[in-house]
Design a protein around this nucleic acid. Sequence first.
DNA 1: GTCTATATATTGATAGAC
DNA 2: GTCTATCAATATATAGAC
Lengths: 231, 231
Amino acid sequence: MPPIKVKMLDPAQQAGTGQSGPEGRAPARTRIQREKQDVILEAALDVFSREGFRGATIDQIAEAAGMSKPNLLYYFPRKEEIYNRLLTGMLDTWLQPLRELDDVGDPVAEIRSYIRRKLEMSRDFPRQSRLFANEMLQGAPRMLDLLETDLKALVDEKAKVLEGWMEAGKIRRTDPYHLIFAIWATTQHYADFDVQVRAVLGQGRGGEGRFEDAARFLEHLFMHGIFPHEG
Amino acid sequence: MPPIKVKMLDPAQQAGTGQSGPEGRAPARTRIQREKQDVILEAALDVFSREGFRGATIDQIAEAAGMSKPNLLYYFPRKEEIYNRLLTGMLDTWLQPLRELDDVGDPVAEIRSYIRRKLEMSRDFPRQSRLFANEMLQGAPRMLDLLETDLKALVDEKAKVLEGWMEAGKIRRTDPYHLIFAIWATTQHYADFDVQVRAVLGQGRGGEGRFEDAARFLEHLFMHGIFPHEG
DNA sequence: GTCTATATATTGATAGAC
DNA sequence: GTCTATCAATATATAGAC
């Protein structure tokens, strides 16, 4: 098995994407600076994921971070910098499950495992999912470049892997791109539309068990569909 | 076949949900008033669906509607009224495909037809989809009541229909609620994450044909899954 | 590094002439 | 019904004391 690059889950991980442009700053040097920035990024994730970029205010973020507005602006001079850091800093983490989809190993098991990991990310990092969803709804004004380059390249690569499995008869022949979209859609739905899922399931089934139910269902759906082939 | 109540697709259709509370106004009486309101609602759909409630500004809406801000406020005294009208006025339309899922007729054909209609709505009304998605991401502060009452009731009813089909061996036995979620997620994904879909598919396949490809794929997925049962 | 005070722009909404 | 002018509140961001 080839080595797997394990990425940090720390929201504050340095991005340095070149996306930040002229306002780019050097990374925080001292431990205390990094800790403060982490507190801010954590609070900002809360607010941005709920309100979107324009809807969120520095006041809200500062209050959630437990500091004054000028103090927050001492660490991040611009609102946009906080947002960009969250967005680009998290993308690697977010795509890690797809990167781990590997040519080696049983294809069906690999895909099941990918679905399971994506669903776990929706369960464990729902705010990150909603942050991305918010950016997408707005037309990805701050991420379109990354989508067209990094993301497209990764999906192209994995689509080839899926096509290889189809050629070999390991999985059914179908459109690999839309298969990936379907996995993204069904798993992220449980983070992005969490309120709706809870409201529809009600008190009885809307509790913590809903992710296990979802996992069981999605495995069933992606493996067999609903057509009653053999009763 | 029982009569099907066909709903209007006009965004300006009167809602009168009780949601609007004390600020509720009588519906516009003259033709010209209604036409102006329609122009405003059309413009507001553009802006709200992209920016969310807080991110959208009356200035943007007014400009998109081709009128001055005070003039717009003459027809809708409060920003929130425009938003609520869009939200509640569209919900009926949005849920119509699910309402049409009927006990009568071939179960597999009914579900295929439901998926197809939902995908068509994502293609033809992407802004409405994104408006709802935006509200969901924010925790549905202005729609939670409707989700817990009207939507839950409808889904409960249709889940029973699906269960009946499962009992009868017409479709595979699985979780009817999560099946509905999966249909929502996969079809609305093409509206809500349109930029991402286009970016990943690239110029070659990101064009207008992507909805046909999606339709073919989703039919395949929901019918058979990807497990290579019979090669 | 953190604070109070404040500059400057934008926002939702209103007043009042026409 | 539509406009210009404007109010009051809120927004991002900065100045400068400590």
